[in-house]
Simulated assay, not measured.
Amino acid sequence: MKSPNIVISKLDLQRLDKILDPLKYPLDLLEALENEIDRARIVGHKRIQPNVVTMNSKVHVLDETTSREFVVTLVYPQDAGAADTVSILAPVGTALLGLKTGQCIEWRTPQCRPLKLKVLEVLYQPEANMDYDL
């Protein structure tokens, strides 16, 4: 399956650039995030649509391989670990960044298990609520 088009805000891009430090995080996770950033369309944070998953967005997701639904908040690595949070450096976090409601992403886990996630709804997006200081 072809990867869907994604959108990232300039503000998120600036913040993500600060965590791309190979001395702090595993190189393979950083490379996956860089690949997503490279294929993204970058827009101003005031122009991003409210149905796009951005950093600190709370997202209702469907795992189409298991029919399991869940809600997660996409966070920076230092904010991960709390219930219902997923780090941007986790494979699922990297996959969700920039997706729109209704879009799906497919990939294989390191154990070769296929995953297919669909964004059902963006429940909260900082940009849509003018929360630019998160």
Rank of each mutant, 00 (worst) to 15 (best):
V119Q: 11
R68A: 03
M55W: 02
L117D: 05
D84L: 11
K24R: 13
I105H: 11
A83M: 12
G98V: 06
I48L: 06
S3C: 00
L62R: 11
V71Q: 09
K118Y: 01
Q78G: 09
P126V: 08
T109E: 11
Q78H: 13
P26T: 03
C112L: 14
S9E: 02
E69S: 11
P91M: 07
A83Q: 13
D21P: 02
L27W: 01
E64F: 00
T66F: 02
E106T: 12
V59D: 03
C112Q: 14
L96K: 11
L30F: 04
K118G: 04
P110G: 12
I37R: 10
A80G: 06
T85W: 00
E127N: 14
R15M: 04
P91R: 15
N35G: 05
V72T: 13
V75R: 00
I37L: 15
P22S: 05
S57F: 01
Q103M: 12
E121Y: 04
T73V: 12
G81M: 02
L11M: 08
L27Q: 12
K116W: 02
Y25W: 12
P22Q: 04
A83C: 05
L117F: 15
E69A: 05
R15L: 07
V71D: 08
D63T: 04
L99F: 07
L33W: 01
K100L: 04
A32Q: 12
I48N: 06
E64T: 07
V59P: 01
P50M: 04
D12F: 01
I37T: 08
C104H: 10
L89Y: 09
V72S: 09
V43H: 07
A95E: 04
T65N: 06
V119Y: 03
P126Q: 12
D17I: 00
G93Q: 08
C112T: 13
D84N: 15
R15P: 00
I88Q: 07
S57N: 04
T101Q: 15
R47H: 09
C112I: 11
T85Y: 00
G102A: 10
I42Q: 08
N51L: 03
T101K: 15
I19P: 03
A40T: 06
L11G: 00
V7S: 02
L99H: 07
V59G: 03
P22K: 11
E69V: 01
C104R: 15
V71W: 02
T94H: 07
L115A: 03
I105N: 04
A82M: 11
L120V: 12
R47I: 01
L33N: 01
N51H: 13
Y132D: 10
L33E: 03
G81H: 10
L115K: 15
R113W: 02
K116R: 15
D84E: 14
I19N: 01
V119D: 10
Q49G: 00
H60L: 12
V122E: 09
P50A: 07
I8V: 14
P26M: 05
T65L: 06
H45D: 08
P50C: 05
K46H: 11
P4H: 05
R113Q: 14
D133H: 14
L96F: 07
G44L: 07
V43T: 10
L117V: 12
P26H: 11
E106P: 01
A90H: 13
V92R: 13
A95H: 06
N51F: 06
N51W: 05
K10Y: 00
I37W: 02
